[in-house]
Design a binder for these strands. Structure first.
Lengths: 316, 316
DNA sequence: CTGTTAGCGCCTTCAA
DNA sequence: TTGAAGGCGCTAACAG
């Protein structure tokens, strides 16, 4: 790799002049400018970003620690983020981490001058990090530091409103406590019921079950007493787990029970599409990058709302 | 961030001694060693990797350009790669690119001193790159530079052998030319037929069709003349596209037609598992990293073979 | 055993 | 309009 010295020598000017031409080429005689450009071209010279970083104390690298369990959503995140970041001349440094210890290790290894900022995405465990340059996205930690959250209460409320509008008045809810958002979901759920003058039946709500499968079995066992014709689940994976189970008990979907995913719907051939709340990864990524760019300390974090997606009935 | 100067001042020694303690701390008086360690701890000092990189002319960053169309397989690649890389103290710099132009742009933007090496994964277009530090993985380019390929002929041969062993002697094949591997697949297919003393019927082979759907329709239209009881497709997505179509024509899967994916099977709840060849991403990642580490110029590239995966019949 | 010196490649004063 | 010099943080060679 050729350096600025090679260029300056070949062009017959000083390093400073080369630097001036390549940066804000102002106050350089046209003649020397051309000489520099020619030399740059001949040598195929590219300024070394490492040297530039050393001087500017910033690398343009953003560390991204993916702590999601749902690998499919991770890809959506990454794709949107990478697009935004590279549009803004930033680099995405990727790490995966499944436990708190792994996240902390990744954080530690990335905090060595390589990254300007670090994103932690989708951690379902408390982290308690207060580094200034760390942003948490869709993580459990709410209070400390910069963070971006999804509005789970809003999602649940929208879901219930939609279901009620479809004549579904017995709405069951299965949501694992371990997600960390069960409370918010319950809040939105209750709010929507109230607004629709529907009674709250705690026998239809399962948040502490060991698994969604167990919860569903209880639900089905009690169906003769507490019937339900809609089922809210946390995400698309839960949905696809729950649908065959319903069908096994002779409940048609969505005929007898309409299943609604509170976070995204799988769009794969061969899989039924169900109504869902979907969060725009592009919107999220855009907000993160603008945050990174402006360095505005959005203290208290920011909240993102999802869109209601309903399956295309015409296609059935 | 504190620097080596702060440490040396606080510890009352020179920068060189600090550096010595932190690297291969040999030949340093225990007393000064302790002083340095204490100062390091107090100041929470971390050597700046950028400065180290400038000196060593290597950053430990590996650029990874994902050019896959199949986003799900991308995640598998990334996950395996990141694990291997971080185990070897390397960083993964991620880019997505869908066209040749985008790949070249990404390559250009990563070739500025930031990355020691660059991986291009899954490009389905000719690239003709001959940078020494670029490795192509599962790309169309075969001849130039370092590359890792999957053994598609071997996969097709294994598939046919397996199908024949299951009594499936009329094996249809749908494989898009655009994959770039159609020839290899055809080779393996023919080889297996020969070894099993089965006739080759060109009416069962579709490689130039505009889509797998069209190919399948032709196949079904001619089924009365040229019957088939097995169907080889390029990957799991094709498989999931083809299965409902078969069922729509009253062909049961795998009863009437056994569908076989030549590259991976989706493991999602609600989706039928089919027999497939699966490539171990871990094996691939391990090989790449050892390549990166040893800098052995494996000229001519290397070839990776997949494993035969058959669905767990007991679970049905 | 330890300090001084000299760069890695770049950019930014400061003089000329 | 330009060149020389200094320094970003670190390590390696060379003296002591």
């Amino acid at each position: 790799m050729s350096t600025i010295n090679d260029v300056s020598r070949l062009a017959g000017v000083s390093k400073a002049t080369v630097s001036r031409v390549l940066s804000g080429s102002r106050g350089v005689k046209e003649e020397s400018r051309q000489a520099v450009l020619k030399a740059v071209d001949e040598l195929n010279y590219r300024p070394n970003v490492i040297a530039q970083s050393l001087l500017s104390q910033s690398t343009g690298c953003i560390g991204v620690i993916c702590a999601q369990d749902n690998i499919h959503q991770t890809t959506d995140y990454l794709y949107a983020l990478e697009k935004q970041l590279s549009d803004h001349q930033k680099h995405l440094l990727l790490r995966f981490a499944n436990t708190k210890a792994e996240v902390l290790r990744a954080l530690n290894e990335l905090s060595c001058g390589l990254c300007d900022d670090i994103l932690i995405i989708g951690a379902r465990f408390a982290l308690n990090i207060d580094q200034e340059n760390v942003i948490m996205v869709d993580c459990m930690d709410q209070d400390n530091g910069n963070n971006i959250q999804f509005d789970h209460a809003f999602a649940a409320e929208t879901a219930c409103n939609y279901l009620a509008s479809q004549g579904r008045h017995q709405i069951a809810l299965i949501h694992p406590l371990s997600s960390g958002f069960a409370e918010q979901v319950l809040l939105g759920y209750k709010q929507a019921l109230e607004k629709n003058f529907l009674p709250f039946n705690r026998n239809l709500v399962f948040m502490g079950s060991s698994s969604s499968s167990v919860a569903l079995q209880e639900l089905l066992n009690n169906a003769s007493t507490f019937n339900f014709n809609a089922l809210l689940v946390a995400n698309e994976l839960e949905a696809q787990r729950v649908i065959p189970q319903l069908q096994a008990f002779n409940k048609s979907v969505p005929g007898d029970v309409m299943v609604f995913s509170l976070a995204g719907s799988l769009n794969l051939p061969g899989i039924p599409t169900i109504p869902a709340i979907e969060y725009s990864m592009d919107a999220m990524a855009a907000r993160i990058v603008s945050w990174l760019d402006e360095k505005t300390q959005m203290l208290g974090g920011c909240v993102l709302r999802g869109d209601l997606i309903i399956p295309d009935m015409g296609k059935r």
